[in-house]
Design a protein around this nucleic acid. Structure first.
Lengths: 358, 358
DNA sequence: GCATTGTGCCCAATCGTTTGTGCCAATCGA
DNA sequence: TCGATTGGCACAAACGATTGGGCACAATGC
């Protein structure tokens, strides 16, 4: 373990930490030599220094606990090995999971990730983006794109910073998403197969392609089957528990025949829906089928296991970072779509499938 | 809106972005003058420039879309306005919520936060810490401290970087925590009051003070009441759903009288517990009481609302950042403890309290 | 009208690294 | 033994911003 930073070293920085000059002086070489000796990659055909010197310099660096000042290095090299990540909220497990995939893959390529919340707020998005750019990130993963026109994307293009969208698509821009339309279709077909004809949708935010596409796919299937959705039963919502709760309350207040099934475009909204139904005395799985989206880890462990459409969140994050790294390297970036699958459980099947687990 | 970065500007950086020199040249002043004109704070008694010049410089900066290179600025000023945050995992809603508090309060003081996962792994913690230090963060919030000896804390002290612990305490180091011992006592007293005498604990990770202290408080109350815990019914666990599931399986396998109540030191572990109990055909709320910890937002909306001890997560994060900022400013840092409260619901009360909501 | 004060800016050094270039000495072939 | 080569390192110039010091000029006081 590097140890005991001595206080009498030469060329310490103002915080008292050893610099490259410290190491160089102690090893009796020039800072430039120290820099080369400590740079990880063997610089191909370049002058690399004798093995003895390199070893000596590395030993000294180790001993004084030298840590390269990445700010200074980045200033010189114009690369930070930093990827910016913009997400709506990290308290949303879906985004947190995607982020983990991004970070994991980034690390494989030597990138660190700088993630920040935007709360889906336009002003905040712009401000956070500027912050990331000011910190000279090498590229950006955008997890909060708007489906139609997106000012943040415009800026990104103007600045010529490599970027990729994840989770949500926007127009033609390179993105890594799950096939949300197909996922919506899966949910719809499942409910149709179970005999439901009049269903409601907790539809999420209209500016998010995830919500829009899932609803679209869902709606298509019911229309094609001759049972088009009742527009009054399609209510927008936030993506969290509270959003689902409110949307479900509105659904229950809607006049006309009550639906027999509810599709929530997000598992947390589905849980809020379950809460509201329970408070209203509706027996989920019997009187009402509920299906969510994303298949978060706790869906199968709920007191009433939740049916859901599984999207490969972690993989989505990994893939997005892979695309970004390629883009930073100068490659052309293209979009990727991953496939969702259905996890049917008791919230739609009723109490007849106790053996479901994962 | 700053617009249309023209391509024919002088002194662009290598990525084609305008620099301070660009702005200065266009405004017909020296870069130093531009720097002063663009620095936010009015430097007390220092020469500040004529209002006309300042306005002109600012206009130019706006027009060419100048964004200060924070790397270069940080190199010169030795301040990054960056606070590092180390957490076990952001997919843990508890930590994600604390992080949001940290970030929110940081922003108030002009800090950005650089958060990263450590997965509670020692090697990863050390590596991530070095990374943050290499990026010259001004201070660090540590969300994954070990209760006993913590090597990361040692390093932090050696480097003389201001830091504060959050959520988990460790020895005498300044920390902002919830009174976990008191929280454990609340849970215990609640179960005792309901008549439970033989109870099990899904105890969390032994290196986390949160788990240790909650268990300690819980255990104390039962011992004081003359019903000491059966050590076989206290099983360590991870803090997630899967961890709770496994721990509960072990509890169910334990020979001897079955317990009538289970305390999980974390809500996700509690949900895993619910899942396992359900699969085993145990009726929670009737045959078995379950109480969790943290009172996450979905606890009240579960198909069977979960009793829990609420800890003020967001506030904990805010407070921690407040302490850190003071510490960076040179103030002495001291520990703060926040108070938990009980949220009793049907997972312990049975089906007789349908009116509970939040 | 002259000395004094103050205002508005520029100059140049500096933060800690990286990297193209060039010098010196050792090594090699003949 | 001599010239050509090359290995090993030092030099110095960046990167883009900040900041103490100082210069020129205008305003002020007497």
């Amino acid at each position: 373990m590097s140890r005991a930073v001595r206080d009498d070293l030469p060329h310490l920085d103002k915080a008292g930490r050893p610099t490259l000059a410290t190491v160089a002086a102690l090893a009796g070489v020039h800072p430039s030599t120290a820099s080369r000796a400590l740079s990880a990659s063997v610089p191909a055909g370049v002058r690399v220094g004798s093995t003895g010197t390199v070893a000596r310099i590395r030993a000294v660096a180790q001993e004084v606990g030298f840590a390269r000042n990445l700010q200074a290095a980045g200033l010189r090299t114009q690369r930070t090995s930093l990827a910016g990540v913009l997400v709506p909220r990290l308290t949303d497990l879906v985004l947190a999971t995607i982020y983990e995939g991004i970070d994991e893959q980034g690390r494989r390529h030597g990138y660190q990730t700088f993630v920040t919340n935007t709360n889906d707020d336009e002003a905040e998005r712009a401000a956070k983006l500027e912050m990331l750019l000011a910190r000279q990130v090498d590229g950006i993963v955008l997890g909060d794109a708007r489906v139609d026109h997106d000012e943040v994307i415009d800026r990104l293009e103007a600045r010529k910073v490599p970027f990729v969208l994840v989770s949500r698509r926007s127009q033609h821009h390179p993105s890594v998403t799950c096939d949300d339309r197909a996922g919506g279709r899966l949910a719809a077909q499942h409910l149709l197969d179970l005999g439901h004809r009049r269903v409601a949708v907790v539809a999420g935010e209209p500016f998010a392609s995830t919500a829009v596409d899932r609803l679209q796919g869902f709606s298509d299937v019911f229309r094609e089957a001759g049972h088009p959705l009742d527009p009054d039963l399609v209510v927008p919502s936030r993506f969290d528990v509270e959003g689902g709760r409110r949307a479900c309350q509105q659904i229950l207040r809607t006049p006309g025949d009550a639906p027999t099934g509810i599709f929530a475009v997000n598992d947390f909204a589905a849980i809020g829906t379950l809460g509201t139904l329970r408070a209203a005395g509706v027996a989920v799985g019997q009187d009402m089928a509920v299906i969510g989206y994303n298949d978060i880890p706790l869906a199968s462990d709920l007191p009433l296991p939740l049916s859901s459409v599984r999207s490969p969140l972690h993989e989505m994050g990994r893939t997005a970072m892979e695309v970004l790294v390629a883009g930073i390297g100068g490659a052309e970036m293209s979009s990727t779509t991953l496939e969702p699958t259905l996890s049917a459980r008791e919230s739609t099947l009723g109490a007849r499938a106790p053996g479901d687990s994962h």
